[in-house]
Structures are given as structure tokens and as C-alpha cells.
Design a binder for these strands. Structure first.
Lengths: 240, 240
DNA sequence: GAGCGTTTAAGTCAATATGACCTTTAGGGG
DNA sequence: CCCCTAAAGGTCATATTGACTTAAACGCTC
């Protein structure tokens, strides 16, 4: 960490953090996990959980650690993928902090608890955030928007929607995931046909689940395919 | 940059770089721009162009600057998007260096010239790299693989393929982009039908281009739509 | 300027997928 | 047993696809 800097006086070291956009579905609503900041800057303001990447961990490991420390969630059960890096020089008043945002999706998760530098952690319905433009700390609203867009697009052509369900699930459950995320109703019958015709998307477990009332539903688990072909295209623009 | 570190001795500052995976199509081949490193580590080895993010620039600005400095390319003419962050602690022998990879796509670009810490810059056919596993510096082969996958997927449902064409182009040109990137032939007639039926994908300029021999072709420019609906699904799995 | 090769443009058609419905099945509870 | 409910499984007109064929518009050559 020495000679390669000589001709480049404008370079300086940065702090690298990870931030997590953790989503789940609760009461037919898409929820994101927020913390109330317990430290300056933005003390008391809502923010995405996150923290500094440590010396000898990968970015992903850092994300998993923060998941555990700040949200009390075991990362093994949920889907975690990188969203991108956010490095505007003005994004953090303390100086140059580049954050790597991660997207985490899981089935109805336990009520979170606060962590080290979070006063408390809670699930916030996504619909309100974007409408009311609640003042999230840093550029976390932008990260959240990007995360949402990514999810909406990605459930079309990958099996990532299954990450919101438990180990096994009914097709109605899976359909509800799509409905909640896209904010539109889908025809149950047509959804079933598409889901079952998309090879490797879901796999019957052989077991059934008995709803409070009505005919029992077959249970499925995620199939072997990650990329869906054909994809489940949303709404009107699905003429392909 | 002070108090927030106290309880976290494992944190250290990092260097942040940007690396560029710049693609173009030349002679019906997908090419990526590589440099021969002029500095240690990996001196003399091929690598993606890139460099340190400077004090007061955004990540994107850093990418644009490196594009200019290392490859002699004006970023205004090409498509630039972030691919993701790579931060394995072992990825750089000098220490903790987190790099943010950018994907750049452009029409047949001028022969590049070497820059500051690049001995020379050249276009390398992508097909050879992956086959022969030429020893790229750092984790640049992984970045390149991710970039390729991203392109192959993204031309399905966005208009990004037009970034490989000039301001105006024929449908044959556009089809060739898909053929080169996917490595499979497409039916010209069906491709035309799909491209023209996908609203906002391409827009006729009214002008025509006269090939060396054969019927003149209509010229098109990019339409207003970025997301394609319906998408142009590749190959066999397009039953949606 | 008729014929030829070549490339773009446009049309045909059977097979398939889609979207909007409707019907049947399998429970639970009164 | 009958009714209510949710899942599962049709039906059918319409739209899209993939594989092919046909027509149009050039430059060239003779």
C-alpha cells in the first residue's frame, strides 16, 4: 500500500460499509427492516441496517454479520445478493464512505431486535415509505428504491419469489408473493398453469396443507431452476 | 471520521478502485478492452482498465475518467452501468482494495491507446479469454464472466443491445448484435417482427442504407423504451 | 436493359401460449 | 347432509411463436 499512490495525490482511503435492504412479506404487505439510528449522524432517524466491513471478511460475509448483529437474523435461511455500490462523495457527512448495498429476502421473519448502534429495529411497510418519503438517513431511500425495482423485475425471470416463502409452500402463497410485490391481482388458475409449466420452478413435496376452510392445497418446494424459462411476465406486457 | 470507530477495532480504511469491462463488437466478434499492466502487481499481465477513485468524484465519474485516461474513450458516446462491487480481502496482494466494476458498451470503437499505468491497450476477443482462461490480473476474470452474463441476460429485456450500434442502424445490424452475444443464429424475419412489435424498441429514421449488394435497408434509431415488453427471449426457452 | 446474385421486407400457417372465464373437487362447520 | 370456501382442473377465443416461403429493391454483368 505504498508506491502505487505516488502519482495520484487526489486519492485517499475510504471507509467501506455494507447496508442491507431486508424484505419480507407480513400480512400481505411487503415490509422492509429499518433501524432507528443510535449514533450520529442522523441520530434517531430511520435507516437501513448496516455497518463497516471488517478487516478480513468478504463483502458478503460482512453483510451476513450485520444481518446477525443488527437485525438478529440468521442469514442461512434467506436469500442474499448484492445490489450495488453507492459512493457519492456527499452521501455521508463524515467523509468518504462507499457502501455496498445488499438485498435480503426471507419468509415471515421473527420480530427483530435492536443491535449495537441501532436503538431499535422494526418492520416498516414499503408502501408508506415511498409515498410519504419518510426521511431515511443517508441515501438509503435511493438504495431502497433500487432494491424494490430489482425485486419487481427479478421475480419475473428468476425463482427468487420462493425466497419469501418457507421451505414448502402452496401455489396460493407463491401467487400472493407476486401480487404483493407487483401490487396487482393475478388469476389464480392461470398463475398455477404458468408456475407448473415453467420447468424447475416448483416441485411438489407430496404433502398437503389444510387451510382453515376449503380444499387442501398441495405443497411445493423450490425446484432446481433458478432462471425461469419461460419467465412469469407481469401484467399487460407479457406478449412474448 | 472519528468516534464511530471506537468500538470496532477490526475496521480499517480501504482503497476503492473502479474497473471497467468495456465491450464492443468488431468483425462479428464480441471484444473486451484489456490493458497490459505497467506496474506491479501483475506487471505485464492483461487486466481490465481501472484505477483509484479520487477524492471528490462519484464512482460513476471515476469510471468515466478512467475510461478516458486508460482507454482514450469519450464516455459520452457509450452506455455505462455499474456491475457490482468486488471486495474479497485476498483479491489484491497489496491489501484491502474494494473495486467497483462498471460495464461499458459501445459501437465499434477506435483502436485504444495505452494510458498512465497501462503499457498498452487492445481489444481481445471474448471467446478466447473464457476458453483459454488467460491469466487476467486480480479477480478480473470473475468480473468479466459476471459482465458477460449480465449482457446476455440484459439484452433480452432492455434495449441495451442498441448501445452496440451507432446512432442509426439497420435491423440486420441489431440482429447481429444478438447473434454475436448469444452465439446463435436468429431467424431474420422473426427477429424483425419481434423488434418492430416491441413498442418503443426501435424507431424508423426514415432514411435508408445501401449495402454493397442487395436491397436497401431501413435505418432505425433507439426508441423511447428502455425496458422491452414483450422481451426478446433467446433461443429455446421463449415459450412465455 | 434483361438476367443474376444478394439482401431486405413481408406473408403464410400450423403449433402453442395466453387471458378470461367456468366447473369440479375436497375439506370444515352447522 | 347441506352449505360455504379455497384449490384444482377445464374450456375457448385470441394472440404469439417458429419455421418457411414469397416478394421487393438494389448493384453488376453481359
Amino acid at each position: 500500500m505504498d508506491d502505487w499512490l505516488k502519482d495520484s495525490v487526489e486519492v485517499e482511503a475510504s471507509w467501506v460499509t455494507v447496508d442491507l435492504a431486508i424484505f419480507t412479506i407480513r400480512d400481505d404487505q411487503l415490509m422492509v427492516l429499518l433501524i432507528e439510528r443510535g449514533l450520529e449522524p442522523f441520530l434517531g432517524r430511520p435507516a437501513l441496517p448496516g455497518g463497516y466491513v471488517q478487516k478480513n471478511e468478504t463483502l458478503r460475509d460482512g453483510a451476513l454479520r450485520e444481518l446477525r448483529e443488527e437485525a438478529g437474523i440468521d442469514g442461512g435461511r434467506l436469500h442474499l445478493e448484492q445490489l450495488g455500490a453507492y459512493g457519492d462523495p456527499q452521501r455521508d457527512p463524515r467523509g468518504r464512505v462507499v457502501t455496498v448495498a445488499y438485498l435480503a429476502l426471507g419468509p415471515d421473519l421473527p420480530a427483530p431486535v435492536g443491535g449495537t448502534d441501532a436503538r431499535r429495529a422494526y418492520w416498516a411497510p414499503v408502501s408508506q415509505l415511498t409515498d410519504e418519503a419518510e426521511v431515511l438517513a443517508f441515501d438509503h431511500l435511493a438504495i431502497l428504491s433500487d432494491a424494490l425495482e430489482e425485486i419487481r423485475r427479478k421475480i419475473e425471470y428468476t425463482a427468487v419469489a420462493t425466497a419469501f416463502c418457507g421451505e414448502s409452500f402452496t401455489l396460493s402463497e407463491l401467487r400472493t408473493v407476486y401480487e404483493v410485490i407487483w401490487g396487482e391481482d393475478l388469476d389464480p388458475s392461470n398463475f398455477r398453469r404458468k408456475a407448473l409449466n415453467t420447468i424447475g420452478f416448483v416441485q411438489p413435496t407430496g404433502e398437503r396443507w389444510h387451510p382453515p376452510t376449503g380444499r387442501p392445497a398441495n405443497l411445493y418446494r423450490r425446484g432446481s431452476a433458478w432462471l425461469l424459462s419461460p419467465p412469469l411476465l407481469r401484467g399487460t406486457g407479457n406478449a412474448a
